[in-house]
């Protein structure tokens, strides 16, 4: 009976996994297909990857994407962590209000955020790399706050007080006691922000100026002219990179929890 149950649940999980990952698997397979046709297998090749790395436009977009992801995640951490500490220190009513306000940008449709930011930016700054960076920082901050907040709540506040009590100044106590305690939350917040920034298309599309391209906006632009197999190779690389980052991120927070 138990074996039967195991088999059934195995089949079910397998079915779900196929539904989730088969399309991506097809994409990955296609990136190694030497035939230009999408329905026939013409043999294994790495030529699309070679072409990809010889394409300056793509490399440029890749660098922009990574810079954007890294910069926006780092700045969101610098703003979000002190923000989370501040919100945590508020009274219950204000805490709830602030957390609700923090949640809104995450629930908000990307297209709304994108258009709203664009309207805002065109009044003040030229649409460029800078405006995209600001947009990414703004949608990353709530995720940083949300991933740090549980660590703050778990943390025993009297540990910080004990540090002060034993003779440490506030700065020392922050860097030697508070920060190490919060580090897992900060790292997982960073990786989440990084991947979100890499993934984003809609908000980037509306806030970028002419000439600035991230991978996602560039792929979109290329697709309009017909899909080239290099794009499969590129998408495969993005998928691998993002899943790598995500597993590092969850790995860190899981390890620290136990």
């Amino acid at each position: 009976m138990k074996r039967f149950k195991d088999i059934i649940s195995g089949i079910y999980i397998g079915f779900i996994a196929v539904l989730l990952y088969a399309p991506i698997l097809v994409l990955i397979v296609e990136s190694f297909n030497s035939s230009r046709s999408r329905v026939t297998w013409g043999g294994f090749t790495l030529s699309w990857y070679v072409k990809l790395f010889n394409n300056n436009q793509i490399l440029e977009a890749f660098i922009t994407t990574v810079l954007l992801a890294f910069g926006s995640a780092a700045i969101a951490i610098l703003i979000g962590v002190p923000g989370a500490l501040g919100i945590h220190a508020m009274g219950r009513k204000r805490y709830k209000t602030m957390m609700a306000l923090t949640n809104i940008p995450m629930l908000n449709a990307d297209i709304v955020t994108g258009i709203a930011l664009m309207l805002w930016f065109v009044h003040f700054i030229p649409l460029s790399f800078g405006s995209v960076l600001l947009a990414h920082i703004s949608f990353n901050i709530p995720y940083v706050i949300l991933s740090v907040m549980p660590r703050i709540q778990q943390m025993n506040v009297s540990i910080y007080e004990a540090t002060r009590d034993l003779g440490a100044g506030p700065v020392y106590a922050f860097f030697h006691v508070l920060l190490p305690e919060l580090l897992p939350g900060i790292l997982s917040g960073f990786f989440m922000a990084f991947t979100l920034s890499m993934d984003d298309f809609v908000i980037t599309y509306f806030t970028k100026g002419a000439g600035v391209n991230t991978l996602s906006t560039m792929i979109y632009g290329q697709i309009k002219k017909g899909i080239k197999p290099e794009m499969y190779a590129l998408s495969t690389l993005i998928f691998v990179l993002v899943s790598l980052l995500l597993s590092i991120g969850t790995g860190i927070s899981a390890k620290k929890e136990h």
Binding site: N156, S158, I159, E161, A162, T163, D165, L166, V177, E181
Partner: peptide, 13 residues
């Protein structure tokens, strides 16, 4: 003055 806190508040690391 030193304090012994209610929750032990030892440094976990």
């Amino acid at each position: 003055v030193n304090t012994v806190f209610q929750k032990y508040s030892l440094f976990p690391h």
